[in-house]
Each structure stands twice: as C-alpha cells, then as structure tokens.
Amino acid sequence: MNKVVGSAKEALTRAGVRDGMTILAGGFGLCGIPENCIAALREMGVKDLIVASNNAGVDDFGLGLLLETRQIRKMISSYVGENAIFERQFLDGELELEIVPQGTLAERFRAAGAGIPAFYTPTGVGTVVAEGKEQREFDGRTYLMERALDGDIAIVKARKGDPAGNLVYRKTARNFNPMIATAANVTIAEVEELVPVGGIEPDQVHTPGIYVQYVFQGVNYEKRIEQRTNRPKGGA
C-alpha cells in the first residue's frame, strides 16, 4: 500500500479540501504542528474553515497564518492566548470561538476516532463549559456529557513515517497528533523523514497506518520555539 504523495497541496487536493470544511490540526503551541499543510491551506485560499486545534498559533506562524488571511470562521481550542490577530477578530465578531478544556478536547478527538459518540467527564462542572450540556450523577459525583469531535480532514505532523502511513512522533511534539490522526474522514500526515516500509520498528509505531490516507515528506521545517527558556551556564 502506497499512500505517499508529493506535497501538502497534492494531499489536500486529493482529500477534496474545500470552503467550509472542518479541519483538525495537530500540535501544542507551535510544537508538532503541520507546518507544510498550514502553508498549503493558506496558498490554496480555502475559507470559512472550522479549525479544531489546541491552540491558534501566533500572529505570524502556525494557525495564525490562516487567521491573518481570514480563512478561519471558527476555532475550537483550549487556549488561544498568544495571538493578537485572533483577539482582534474575535472581539470584532469576525471569528467564532468554542472553548474546550484541554483534556476534554483530547478525549473528544479520541472518542471520535474510537466510535464513541459521547462520554462523561467531571471537567467543567459548575462552570460556563457546562452550559447547555447534559449532566449525570455517577456514584455521587456530577459529570458532564461531552460529544465526540470529528472533522473532514485531519492534518498531523510526525517525526517519521512510511508509505503504509505508520507514524512515529518525537518527544512532546506527539501531543494531540495521535488522536487527531484518528478523528477525521481523511488524515494527511506530513513527516520530517519518510522511510521505506520496514524502516520503522513495528513495536515503535505510535499511529498505525490504518488511520492515515496520505503521507508526504515535509520540507523547510522552521520548528519555531515559542518560549525560549534557559538555565545559566555552570548553574544548577
């Protein structure tokens, strides 16, 4: 099975990307984000997108690039605090926002990929997150019902991938990518290194190829650091 395509644009075209679609994007902050797919979405100019991703990038990088061009109609995120463009568009009423607690967001993606339409969680009971949601008591504790969150296209980033779509992530760049890879109709994986089938130790596969429809060798990764923090040389 060969799922290899030449570029992000080819993958998105073959996936049938169009205006108004729901895109699920992997990454946490700017770590482990599908840089090539974001750039291609910008170049292709699809608009009115609903984008579900833990964060919304920064002004000039990550999903911020799609906010800048007003291609996103609605964001579904847990934290959007690093983005002035986001703030302006949101306060001007141009951009919708659905705030989802981070663990609930991760589980909503996981549930979508695992065929679970809804689940109960204690997170957010008694807060604005609970508004309009069914509540139920189990063993004396109140839980909220949260729905699975699926999408039309998932864009994920992995360290390594093979033509069968098997993926390996690196360190904390794993984050939301594995769940997002399972949660959409079509999943596109961009990888830093495309290896031949057999190039990944089967025991080390994080995302099995069944979830991935297209894989390509990514190019020109910037991998920008959001908060560069250091300890002094010679210090503890």
């Binding site: 946490f28 902050g29 700017l30 770590c31 482990g32 690093e82 360290r159 690196r170 360190k171 904390t172 760049a173 991998k223 920008r224 650091i225 959001e226 908060q227 560069r228 923090t229 250091n230 300890r231 040389k233």
Partner: peptide, 18 residues
C-alpha cells in the same frame, strides 16, 4: 531548562517553555 544553544523545539512544557 536547557543551556543556551541546547533548546529542542520538540521538547516543551505546558507553558510552551523549552
């Protein structure tokens, strides 16, 4: 935190710090 020059963009905490 890493020493200067040893930051890894794939290795951050929940505050997005290296």
């Amino acid at each position: 935190f890493p020493y200067e020059g040893e930051e890894d963009p794939d290795l951050i905490n929940a505050g997005k710090q290296t």
